[in-house]
Write a protein that binds this DNA or RNA. Structure first.
Lengths: 235, 235
DNA sequence: GCGGATTTGTTCGTATGTATA
DNA sequence: GTATACATACGAACAAATCCG
């Protein structure tokens, strides 16, 4: 429209408009998008621009494309399929979450470094993972503030962050996890109701978004008896 | 070039050629790529095609692009690009191996079960993994006898079994690893010269050959301070 | 099941804006 | 400040897969 708005590329503007329609559930998974020709007319742009929009949406895993057929909104993938290769397994029947702390911080140097952002507001979440009433894990999680706003309200409702991110159209391109073992300290032992000195599995994770910038950093400590980490390479 | 290859889109062919140069370390992280104009001439294609190649490489996180500057190979540790998946890392300078036990057994029920062979001779190997003179890990390894014959003579010479298998043309189709934590027992503590009660990372591994039958089962316990387990999904 | 119309995938050429060197 | 190089955007053509009567 105006000269100010022209800073944002057309293909990004159109991409956002299409994502909005999916977010607002005007288009639900499985629905066909308009054809490229229709989109060209609708937004009054060239095929090149529409194709770049479509390519990005497909690359981000938001839509699925096939030659000769109109693009469709992607069916939300199952949790298991999102992590091919690695399977976490927590044992127990009834799982729940207790939120210990949830706040925005400005001065956490280590988290800022992990998230590669400086002097910015960071959302911090500390939770207890509970199975059948017994604590089995202790989690500290950091995200940039804009992600925190998406997840903080229901921080006790979700067990795993990735489905929540997916529902908010925040996709990731890679996950890195470091696994090590440590002894439980007094603070953690009291929280989990165990004896100081027991061993824990400690998992540090950094998740990168589709722009390859960090969107989440977390450290989780599990009781080995209730947790198993399985890696499969090949098939 | 040839007629056969023409099925593959140009931008994919060029992408592969560029990735090859990075894999072969002709271009190392930080190196600039040729400009788009140079690539156009070199491959005799249009700007559109080169741009699609560049866009994909950037989106995949293999190169970094900035407006006005030539693209550069992204700073990424080499292991990760070549073998996305799992990286073990043992810290230390000078590594060595001490063989504790090396023998053929007939009556090890658990190993027979893991290797899915019955009433057959199994090769058993127990080794200490040493870094700078200090034990950092304790490994028990089982293979079918025919594999044992290939590896037993030099059991103190190799640190990792897979290169040895590869040199003997024994290939694998998959690896499964379970990671957990445990407390060191008295036997292990004495072997590694540590205090009973320290935590260990425990990795159980089953390797399947190209015929999908097990060729190796092992259990290794590491001192967390000297070991790190890294899993990467995506790239 | 066949065949034409539609739609996406690839590639060319060209032009302009904007950030870097 | 100028030349270079990348980012965006237009138009056009053909190939390949799909869709529909």
């Amino acid at each position: 429209m105006s000269k100010q708005q022209r800073k944002i590329p057309l293909y990004i503007q159109i991409k956002r408009k299409l994502i909005d329609k999916i977010k607002e559930r005007e288009w639900v998974p499985g629905d066909p998008l308009p054809s490229e020709g229709q989109l060209m007319q609708q937004f009054n742009v060239s095929r090149t621009t529409i194709r770049q929009t479509i390519r990005e949406l497909a690359h981000d895993g938001i839509i699925e494309t096939r030659r000769g057929a109109v693009a469709r909104v992607k069916e939300t993938p199952k949790d298991e399929l999102e992590n091919p290769g690695v399977v976490h397994h927590e044992s127990g029947g009834e799982f729940s979450i207790k939120v210990l702390r949830s706040k925005y911080v400005y001065d956490h140097y280590f988290a800022q470094q992990q998230l590669q952002i400086e002097d910015a507001k960071i959302f911090f979440l500390e939770r207890l993972r509970i199975a059948d009433g017994t604590p089995i894990g202790f989690q500290q999680l950091y995200t940039p503030a804009y992600i925190g706003e998406l997840i903080e309200n229901e921080a006790s409702a979700w067990f795993d962050i990735f489905p929540v991110l997916g529902m908010n159209s925040v996709n990731y391109s890679s996950i890195k996890e470091d696994v090590t073992a440590s002894l439980v300290n007094q603070y953690e032992a009291d929280l989990m109701g165990i004896t100081s000195g027991d061993p824990l599995i400690e998992i540090s994770r950094v998740t990168l978004g589709t722009d390859h910038r960090p969107i989440e950093f977390s450290k989780t400590k599990y009781l080995p008896a209730h947790f198993n980490y399985r890696i499969e390479i090949g098939y």
